[in-house]
């Protein structure tokens, strides 16, 4: 059983890593700010989400798992709030059409 958990952890963490690298590459390479924002949110949400999922079986009991999910939830909420504000920055006032 623990082998299965380890394999799941490795796969999930690797997938999370891939999203982080892709998100960061996007942040560096994409031409304009809007597309960079698109790349960033991928790294934020999925990268961290998969790593958290991967670490769930290793988290000590219910408390640890709850804390991991709370961290992921916090990052989701905060990037959900910051995203539109940053997008509005690039649009400037006329962004409200």
């Amino acid at each position: 059983m623990s082998l299965l958990a380890d394999v799941f952890t490795i796969v999930a963490v690797l997938a999370g890593l891939v999203f982080f690298i892709a998100g960061t590459a996007g942040l560096l390479r994409f031409p304009d700010t809007a597309s960079r924002l698109h790349a960033l949110t991928k790294a934020d949400h999925l990268g961290l989400g998969l790593i958290v999922l991967g670490l769930l079986p290793r988290a000590g009991g219910m408390g640890g798992a709850l804390r991991l999910l709370a961290i992921w939830g916090l990052v989701l909420v905060s990037s959900a709030a910051v995203g539109p504000m940053v997008a509005r920055l690039t649009r400037g006032p006329e962004g409200r059409e």
């Binding site: 942040l27 924002l37 960033l40 790294a43 934020d44 990037s79 910051v82 940053v86 920055l89 690039t90």
Partner: peptide
């Protein structure tokens, strides 16, 4: 400016 904020969040 927006790039800096995004990078800081990342």
């Amino acid at each position: 400016v927006a790039d800096r904020i995004m990078a800081a969040q990342l």
